[in-house]
Design a protein around this nucleic acid. Structure first.
Length: 397
DNA sequence: GCACCTTTGAAGGCG
DNA sequence: CGCCTTCAAAGGTGC
C-alpha cells in the first residue's frame, strides 16, 4: 500500500495522471503485509496540483483525516489545529491548498494573516508560552492598545515549521508501524520509520520531498515574514544539555566501537528490538518497504519515474558532499556513507536509499535532477549493525 | 505537567 | 562554506 494512502481519503485516481512506477504496483507490502493501495503520482495528496488535469478534487477535508481518523495536523485537546490557516488563495495556491483546507477556511484578508478565528494547522494555540510575538503575524495587533496587544500576543498563534519530507512520511506511516508492532513509543517507532525511510525507493522518497517542498512553499506564502527562528526557544528544552550528554555517550560508543563487531550494545535497543517482526527496514532479505530487494530490482527503477513528470520547482543538485554530520567519523569507521545535501533551500538531500551493489554510480548519475540521493552503504547491513548508527546519528545531531 | 527520547530534514546563525 | 543548533510529529516514559 502506498504510504501516502492514509493521507488520501479520496480516490487515488486524482493523483495518478501517469502510470505509477512499475515496482510500486498496488499489492501487499511484503514487509508489512499491509495491502498497498495503488500508487499515486508523486503529486502531493495534500496539494493536488492541476485539478483540471486530475479531475474532480476530492473533498478538501481529506487531508484532515489522513490516517485512521487522525488529522494530518493533529487537533490538540485545546482545539482545532491546522498547518495553515485560512488564507487568500490565488489560482495557483488554491490548487495547492484545496486538499488541505477545509471548506470553511475561506480566504482571509491577507495571506499570512490568520485573521479569522479559524486556526491553521501550523498554528498552535499558545499552549507553549508565547514570547513577544514575532513581527510577522498579526498586524492587526499592533493597532490595538498595549493591553490588548499584550493579550493578543499571549494568544498569538504559534506558527509551526512546515513538515519536512521525513516528518510527512512519519505522520503517514506511524499508524501502520504502530499497528504492526506492539510498540507505541514514538522513540522506537521513529527508529523504525527512520530505517524504513532509508529503504524507501527513490520515487517514494521523492514524493515526500515534493510534498515537503510544497509545504514549505505554501507556508512561505502564508507566512512570508515567518522565520524558523521565531520558534526558537519556544520549546524550553534541556535538549541542549541532553544532547551534550549524548555526545558524551556517543564518545563512549565510539570508544567501544572497536568492539562494534559485538552485538548491538546501543541504548536504542531499548526502543528498537533487533528482531522486531515489524522491523522491515533492517531486513536485508528483500523485504524492504518499497525498494527492490535485489540490485537488479533496484536498478529497474532508476531515477526516471520520479523525475519524469516531477515538476519539481527546485532543480536538484546532484552535488554529493561528504557526510557533514559528526557521525560521519563513526560511520566511516564501519561503513561508507555518502550523503549529499542540497545547499539551497528546498533542495532535499540526496536520496537515502539502499545501495544496490554496483548501482551506486549509476544511481547517482541517473538521479533525477530534482531528487536527493544519498548513499547509505550501511543500508545493506543487518539490523543489528545498523542500529548503532542511528544511535550515533542522534548523538551527533 | 513538562521534558525526554528518537528519527530526518529544513533553516538560521556563527566562525 | 561548513558546522552547529533548533524545531517540526508523536506518544510512552520519567521526574
Amino acid at each position: 500500500m502506498h504510504p501516502l494512502t492514509p493521507l488520501i481519503t479520496y480516490s487515488n485516481d486524482h493523483f495518478s495522471p501517469g502510470s505509477p512506477p512499475t515496482h510500486l504496483s498496488p499489492e501487499i507490502d511484503p514487509k508489512t503485509g499491509i495491502p498497498r493501495p495503488p500508487h499515486p503520482s508523486e503529486l502531493s495528496p495534500y496539494y493536488p496540483l492541476s485539478p483540471g488535469a486530475v479531475g474532480q478534487i476530492p473533498h478538501p477535508l481529506g487531508w484532515l483525516v489522513p490516517q485512521q481518523g487522525q488529522p494530518m495536523y493533529s487537533l490538540p485537546p485545546g482545539g482545532f489545529r491546522h498547518p495553515y490557516p485560512a488564507l487568500a488563495m490565488n489560482a495557483s495556491m488554491s490548487s495547492l491548498v484545496s486538499s488541505r483546507f477545509s471548506p470553511h477556511m475561506v480566504a482571509p484578508a491577507h495571506p499570512g494573516l490568520p485573521t479569522s478565528g479559524i486556526p491553521h494547522p501550523a498554528i498552535v494555540s499558545p499552549i507553549v508560552k508565547q514570547e513577544p510575538a514575532p513581527p510577522s503575524l498579526s498586524p492587526a495587533v499592533s493597532a490595538k492598545s498595549p493591553v490588548t496587544v499584550k493579550k493578543e500576543e499571549e494568544k498569538k498563534p504559534h506558527v509551526k515549521k512546515p513538515l519536512n519530507a521525513f516528518m510527512l512520511y512519519m505522520k503517514e506511516m506511524r499508524a501502520k508501524v504502530v499497528a504492526e508492532c506492539t510498540l507505541k513509543e514514538s522513540a522506537a517507532i521513529n527508529q523504525i520509520l527512520g530505517r524504513k525511510w532509508h529503504n524507501l525507493s527513490r520515487e517514494e522518497q521523492a514524493k515526500y520531498y515534493e510534498l515537503a517542498r510544497k509545504e514549505r512553499q505554501l507556508h512561505s506564502q502564508l507566512y512570508p515574514t515567518w522565520s524558523a527562528r521565531d520558534n526558537y526557544g519556544k520549546k524550553k528544552k534541556r535538549k541542549r544539555e541532553k544532547q551534550l550528554s549524548q555526545t558524551q555517550s556517543q564518545q563512549q560508543v565510539q570508544e567501544a566501537e572497536g568492539a562494534l563487531a559485538s552485538k548491538s550494545k546501543k541504548p536504542c535497543v531499548q526502543y528498537l528490538p533487533p528482531e522486531k517482526p515489524c522491523d522491515s527496514p533492517a531486513s536485508s532479505h528483500g523485504s524492504m518497504l518499497d525498494s527492490p530487494a535485489t540490485p537488479s530490482a533496484a536498478l529497474a527503477s532508476p531515477a526516471a519515474p520520479a523525475a519524469t513528470h516531477s515538476e519539481q520547482a527546485q532543480p536538484l543538485s546532484l552535488t554529493t558532499k561528504p557526510e557533514t554530520r559528526a557521525q560521519l567519523a563513526l560511520h566511516s569507521a564501519t561503513f561508507l556513507s555518502a550523503k549529499a545535501a542540497a545547499t539551497s533551500s528546498g533542495q532535499p538531500p540526496l536520496l537515502s536509499r539502499p545501495l544496490p551493489l554496483g548501482s551506486v554510480p549509476t544511481a547517482l548519475l541517473t538521479s533525477p535532477p530534482s531528487f536527493p540521493a544519498t548513499l547509505h552503504a550501511h543500508q545493506a547491513l543487518p539490523v543489528l549493525q545498523a542500529q548503532p548508527l542511528s544511535l550515533v546519528t542522534k548523538s551527533a545531531h
